[in-house]
Amino acid sequence: MPDLFPDDREHLSLDPGAVLLGGFALPVDRTLLEVITHVAETAPFCHLETPGGRRMSVAMTNVGRLGWVSDRHGYRYSPVDPLTGRPWPAMPPNFAALATKAAATAGFSNFAPEACLINRYASGAKLSLHQDRDERNLDQPIVSVSLGVDARFLWGGQGRTDRPRRVALHHGDVVVWGGPARLTYHGVDTLVESSHPLTGTLRYNLTFRTAN
């Protein structure tokens, strides 16, 4: 599995339709983290269950009109938090503004996210290769923001067995993919023990989508 650790990361093409914007979220990183803390007070992080009955190593919560959830009934979007039974917190304007700006920078204009999945990784957590295909509208891109501890993004192909590359993700990096890359298999390698001055040993990821 080859590594991809480029020197020029400001606007790195991963594939047609997929771009890494190095450090794009740094100007608003502290604000994003403050919002995450407030969101978790209303919609606490939890470890969801896969349809196969396995507990996910990544803790999750959501903001927006819809939130991504998983249990033995499958993967889907829900307007309410299954943990509290209440609607998800509204999409913060600064979240939506960052996602829209990143998408436009990557070549996808008029992106209007209605869902943001917030993942929290501790040491040892990982996200297996998968496609984001639970959305009805696959014409819109995915915008993924990294905060905190460094991670290795697994960037595969259109088939599950395609050999993925490992892409270094640092605090403030944003990856955008859509068009021909929209259903690319991707994931996050096991998070190694490390520390970041703003998040301690944790990594956060914001994944913006148009669900309908």
Rank of each mutant, 00 (worst) to 15 (best):
M1I: 13
R120L: 01
G179F: 04
H170K: 13
A18P: 09
F95Q: 08
D81A: 00
G124S: 04
L98A: 12
H130T: 09
P93F: 07
L32S: 10
Y121W: 09
P87Q: 00
G85M: 11
H73Y: 01
G187L: 12
R182N: 00
F24M: 05
L127G: 02
R133F: 01
G178F: 00
D162E: 14
R86N: 05
S109P: 09
D189E: 12
P6Q: 10
G200Q: 04
A104K: 13
W68I: 06
L20A: 12
R160N: 11
C46V: 09
V69A: 07
S123G: 10
T190R: 15
D81E: 04
A97W: 13
N62M: 02
L202S: 01
G124F: 15
N212K: 15
G200W: 01
N205C: 00
A122I: 07
D81V: 07
L206S: 10
S146I: 08
T50C: 05
D8I: 06
S78Q: 13
G52C: 02
Q140L: 12
T84I: 02
D3M: 15
P44G: 08
R209P: 13
V145W: 03
G200T: 04
I118Q: 02
P16T: 07
D139E: 14
V143F: 07
N62W: 08
H38Q: 13
R30P: 01
G124V: 03
V192E: 09
F95I: 03
L48A: 10
P16V: 02
P16M: 03
F108Y: 15
F5M: 04
A102I: 11
